[in-house]
Design a protein around this nucleic acid. Structure first.
Lengths: 299, 299
DNA sequence: GCGCTTCCATGACTTGAAAGAATGCTCGCC
DNA sequence: GGCGAGCATTCTTTCAAGTCATGGAAGCGC
């Protein structure tokens, strides 16, 4: 018996040939792509079938068709080769120039926090061009061509390299005009005279806040419920109500006087911001550089 | 210039060798695994480096080390080979017997709906053994060895084969003892005399329900907030309060008299249940059979 | 310091798996 | 019924990959 340490893998050349044949559904055309004769393709696929002890195609003299098992294997093999191909292209093309870093970012975090800091990155590393993609869906570092992403959550990403960036401090803000009006906000209770603006993905944040600061929740007037934090910020500046926002998103507006903070309370938010990347991508120079720079920004 | 239609792939044998060398950090030991001489491994890796025009290892005479680029490529290549290896094993081992179907299921949906129906599947297909895994995290069909999964959501799974199973109808249920007590639930308003049980992953469902049936939300007494639907069901049966539950989860308990429904209202839930699988897995006979059976159960 | 071992690189030679060329077979089509 | 398209098969050939042998550099024990 053969030693059989190591991997259980068929001939990878046979696999590459199989993938091409399955793609074209034709030995002849696949052979053309691979720059070999039809004969070679035919025999290579047969040897793969013999190795696996599984028929991959049904042959009907002028026509071939994948078997169920062939279809399964094909899907899988194609994914694998796609992966290798993408990586190979990546490696060859990023050989000298550091290439383009693609960042998937959350809309508000990006525009409020990250984008203002990027000029400093560009200055330090002019050889890396940037590609900013607004994304908050599923992460797929292979297909979406994203190198790194910024996400909100609890670090629950499997198979990924994760760096905590910052936790949130939630605070109450409103337009200064509200403070100068008929009902200045001087106590938790005085909030009853104002509309509370909500964020649609965190509908309970006000309840949570009242509980955290030890205030009793009363019947409240609700203001608009908005999709993104930047809309909430705009609504608060416009005086549409009182908002509950992460401190780092409103620092600028507080400094410039667009917003004021009636209370000194800071409660911690329901999660934190993370830098997320894949194991493979994390080894790319441009990703290492960006990660290092980003973490330095926080220090 | 070479035609260069088709894929841009290096020699896959070289890649396999590279992966082994990187794994052992040694040409000698990798060569041993591959049953070739150290010389052969050395040459193949060098040819790969020449093809890519990228150094993959730094050589320090007695020691080698992956370069950054080598580490990147290694991660990627390893993932690919893992994929192929897993598929190859799958294919060879499932050759004759249909093998074991691994189902990742949501805890309550599984025990309440799926598990009671599985005996019928077993009877019809005794050659397929079942492996039931309780899972609600990230989906990874490669590593977690799950063939199919049942998930709740909006069909937002990328790169997957998705079948809608059923939408939810949400209804109010409680123990019959509550109806016979001091405050029978005869109107929406009479709910104020009872505690409302909540589900932690859907904290707003009561508000949503009140809005949907056109009732005015009053100050409510809250009961416990529980993690899983089966706990909510148990709490309702125990008379701890009134619960809002998907109809198909409580059908049995209503039939047996453990629970009653004060109202006839049925509102639609925030999502639906789906059968999810990967493109490759969906071609496996055991998966095809299960999918067909499951969809037939719904008809 | 010196021999011994370990590990990688390289030049020269060898080999067999994969490629090519030619032919046969089957089937659909005009 | 002859033709062409496409896969299989047999026989021959070739070159990519492998072996063997050797060299050099570095670590290790004494």
């Amino acid at each position: 018996m053969l030693a059989m340490r190591g991997r259980l893998l068929p001939s990878l050349n046979a696999i590459r040939t199989f993938e091409a044949v399955a793609r074209y559904n034709s030995f002849t055309r696949a052979a053309e792509e691979l720059n070999v004769t039809q004969s070679a393709a035919s025999r290579l696929v047969r040897s793969l079938e013999e190795y696996l002890q599984v028929p991959l195609f049904t042959r009907q003299s002028r026509r071939i068709e994948l078997t169920d098992q062939g279809r399964f294997y094909n899907e899988l093999v194609r994914d694998s080769l796609d992966l290798i191909e993408a990586g190979t292209v990546e490696l060859i093309s990023s050989k000298e120039g550091k290439g383009t870093l693609s960042i998937g970012m959350l809309p508000t975090f990006g525009t409020r926090w990250l984008v203002p800091r990027l000029p400093s990155f560009q200055e330090a590393h002019p050889e890396i061009s940037l590609n900013i993609i607004s994304s908050d869906g599923q992460l797929d570092f292979t297909k979406e061509r994203i190198d790194v992403a910024i996400r909100f959550g609890h670090g629950e990403w499997s198979d990924a390299i994760v760096d905590p960036l910052m936790s949130e401090e939630i605070m109450v803000v409103c337009s200064p005009r509200l403070m100068e009006g008929k009902y200045p906000i001087t106590s938790y209770d005085s909030l009853r005279h104002h509309r509370l603006i909500r964020h649609s993905t965190r509908p309970n944040s006000w309840e949570h806040w009242f509980r955290s600061v030890g205030a009793h929740r009363e019947d409240q007037q609700w203001g608009p419920t908005l999709e993104h934090f930047f809309m909430v910020i705009q609504a608060a500046i416009a005086g549409l109500g009182v908002a509950l926002l992460p401190s780092f998103l409103v620092e600028d507006d507080i400094r410039s006087g667009n917003l004021v903070t009636p209370f000194t309370d800071r409660i911690s938010g329901p999660g934190a911001y993370y830098l997320v990347t894949s194991a493979a991508k994390s080894e790319l120079p441009r990703v290492k550089i960006f990660r290092q720079w980003l973490l330095a920004q926080l220090a």
